[in-house]
């Protein structure tokens, strides 16, 4: 054992001395199958990928770990295509986006969209005021909790439309549904979300 080595890992050591490898250097080492560089690759990018996936898979947080691993394995398969034009984290998030959309597509194809019990009601037309009533952090927490409590199709359509910023047409094409069906689903999802939001606000 090398007793003279400081009790600090390479990643921290390099960061502390400002000698962190550039993304391109790191990728080159990973492509040569350097195990420590591979560890640095995971340490450098896992937080971003995890944060993104965790927030996009609500309410299926049970799938987060598997998807994060799948993203890294897909990244390894395509790592030779990384050119360093953007940060490595962003490149990985690009892969993550594709994987998340694959998940949305699969779920909306599998799950029934029409719920006879849940027709559009004459519901609250006013949208709640975000700025005045809630601190940002609380708004984020409410959002996640409400998304978790909604039927999965509702969470998926809201996340896909507003978080991933996909148009109704794009979602319709990807899921093989009509645009009208997607629009109706989105309207019901919005309505349920707002209803639950207003209930919380009323009891606050």
């Amino acid at each position: 054992m090398d007793q003279g080595q400081p009790e600090i890992c390479e990643i921290e050591e390099r960061a502390a001395t400002g000698q962190e490898r550039s993304d391109r250097e790191l990728v080159a080492e990973v492509l040569r199958k350097d195990r420590k560089a591979t560890a640095e690759f995971v340490a450098r990018c896992a937080d971003s990928v995890y944060g993104y996936v965790r927030h996009r898979l609500i309410p299926r947080t049970d799938l987060v770990d598997d998807l994060v691993q799948e993203i890294f394995l897909a990244a390894w398969e395509n790592l030779d295509r990384f050119r360093g034009d953007s940060p490595l984290r962003n490149w990985l998030l690009g892969i993550a986006r594709h994987k998340v959309e694959d998940h949305y597509r699969k779920r909306l194809r599998e799950l029934p969209l029409e719920d006879e019990e849940e027709r559009l009601e004459n519901s609250p037309s006013d949208v709640p005021d975000l700025e005045e009533t809630l601190a940002k952090r609380q708004a984020g927490q409410w959002t996640r909790e409400i998304l978790s409590s909604l039927p999965e199709t509702y969470s998926v359509i809201l996340l896909w439309r507003y978080w991933e910023k996909r148009s109704l047409r794009e979602i319709a094409v990807q899921t093989g549904r009509t645009e009208k069906a997607i629009e109706r689903l989105l309207a019901r999802a919005r309505q349920q979300f707002k209803k639950r939001w207003n209930e919380r606000q009323a009891s606050k």
């Binding site: 591979t38 560890a39 690759f41 995971v42 340490a43 896992a46 937080d47 971003s48 990928v49 995890y50 944060g51 993104y52 965790r54 927030h55 770990d65 994060v68 691993q69 890294f72 394995l73 390894w76 975000l130 940002k136 952090r137 708004a139 984020g140 959002t143 996640r144 809201l158 439309r161 507003y162 978080w163 919005r190 979300f193």
Partner: peptide, 29 residues
């Protein structure tokens, strides 16, 4: 909803991945 998504999105980056997940990903790689 766009505003809500924007606010919630900002929080996503602040969460660290569990160490056991990093370990699992590293082993798989």
């Amino acid at each position: 909803f766009e505003l809500l998504a924007l606010q919630e999105h900002e929080e996503a980056d602040q969460e660290g991945a569990p160490s056991r997940l990093k370990a699992r990903v590293y082993s798989a790689l």
